[in-house]
């Protein structure tokens, strides 16, 4: 991985102010993302895994600047896009797109599919009217839909088909990065497989990078090159999918892995059960955020936030016990 990173996040933070209803006084912050650093390389799929509310969607949204980061830096192709105005950001918007979780909310219910797909081209004033229509047909074809489907409205499609349309819309501007925010979690298992296959073949054909947010370890294992494990807005472990699923080091990773159902009867893996509830991100524990539930907790865990250290090439972990 000597190539320069496509995206580089440096100590990215996104805190949401919490205001009381009385006179909008600030009463603290929700630390949705609290200091994440990572690189995403061209052509790879980086999976981001974590429980709901751990900030994985927020990273994705901040990465493509749907949200303004509170602190830290976002570099895209080497350029700092952290504080660009919306006008200066526009050329970068073409290169990073998003596929959303809910296929029923991600399409304008009153807009025909071909108009939905044409809109990004219109916004960026690409091609003339006729060429845009042809491009729309190409896109439909690329995601496995017919030309006639373009004349319909979103409600005439199934969830899987809508997700295909969402993917086509993301592809319209020829991006190099697509943030996939749980793109298959709202779909039936059989349809999930089709969509994942589609994502994979598109990646091979176009050399796309995916920032793949998911809570489904099976899906991540199937699709991703590298995986980031998150907990309460912080990074716990980052490694290649192969390494992580075989020998994940972090106690939280191990607990997650032990929860994957095994298809082999008789062969049991010891289940690591986490005690207690997920702490509130508005009042995260001191030190390591995981210490309240960690089976291997030490006294230092309560006091100091662990370093984000590299224990093997490309394998990073934040844990005092390792």
């Amino acid at each position: 991985m000597a190539a320069p990173a496509l995206v580089k996040l440096e100590n990215l933070k996104k805190h949401y102010p919490r205001r009381s209803s009385w006179f909008r006084r600030s009463t603290g912050e929700v630390k949705a993302v609290d200091g994440i650093s990572l690189e995403l390389y061209a052509g790879e799929t980086l999976g981001v895994v974590g429980e709901s509310g751990c900030g994985k969607s927020t990273i994705g949204r901040t990465l493509i600047r749907l949200e303004k980061p509170t602190e830290g830096r976002i570099r895209f192709e080497g350029a700092d896009i952290t504080h660009l105005s919306s006008r200066k950001l526009k050329p970068y918007r073409r290169k990073m797109q998003m596929v959303f979780q809910d296929p029923f909310a991600s399409l304008n219910p009153r807009q025909r599919i071909d108009d939905t797909l044409e809109e990004p081209l219109t916004i960026h004033q690409m091609l003339d009217k006729r060429a845009r229509r042809e491009r729309v047909w190409e896109l439909l074809d690329e995601v496995g839909l017919d030309r006639e489907h373009g004349e319909r409205l979103p409600h005439e499609f199934s969830g899987g088909q809508r997700q295909r349309i969402g993917i086509a819309r993301a592809l319209a501007l020829n991006p190099s990065l697509i943030v996939c925010d749980e793109p298959v979690s709202a779909l039936d298992v059989s349809v999930q497989a089709q969509i994942l296959k589609l994502l994979k073949s598109l990646q091979q054909k176009r050399g796309l990078s995916y920032f793949f947010i998911s809570h489904d370890l099976g899906v991540v294992r199937h699709l991703c090159d590298r995986v980031l494990i998150m907990y309460l807005g912080q990074a716990m472990e980052l490694a290649s999918a192969f390494t992580l699923f075989r020998e994940g080091q972090h106690p939280y990773t191990q607990a997650l892995l032990s929860a994957i159902p095994r298809p082999v009867p008789g062969k049991k893996r010891e289940r690591i059960l986490l005690k207690g509830d997920l702490p509130s991100p508005s009042d995260p524990p001191s030190g390591c955020p995981f210490h309240t539930r960690c089976p291997e907790v030490r006294s230092v865990c309560r006091e100091r936030r662990p370093e984000w250290k590299e224990i093997a090439p490309g394998h990073r972990i934040a844990c005092h016990a390792r």
């Binding site: 949204r61 493509i64 749907l66 919306s86 950001l89 526009k90 918007r93 073409r94 990073m96 797109q97 998003m98 959303f100 979780q101 809910d102 909310a105 991600s106 399409l107 304008n108 219910p109 009153r110 807009q111 809109e119 990004p120 916004i123 960026h124 969402g166 819309r169 501007l173």
Partner: peptide, 26 residues
């Protein structure tokens, strides 16, 4: 806050387009 509005924003659509072409008809 619907996702199609966010999709528009991520494409770089202006507020005028989002307000009058997408929100108003809905």
């Amino acid at each position: 806050d619907r996702e199609y509005v966010q999709a528009l924003r991520s494409m770089g659509a202006g507020d005028g387009r989002i307000l009058f072409k997408h929100l108003l008809p809905n």
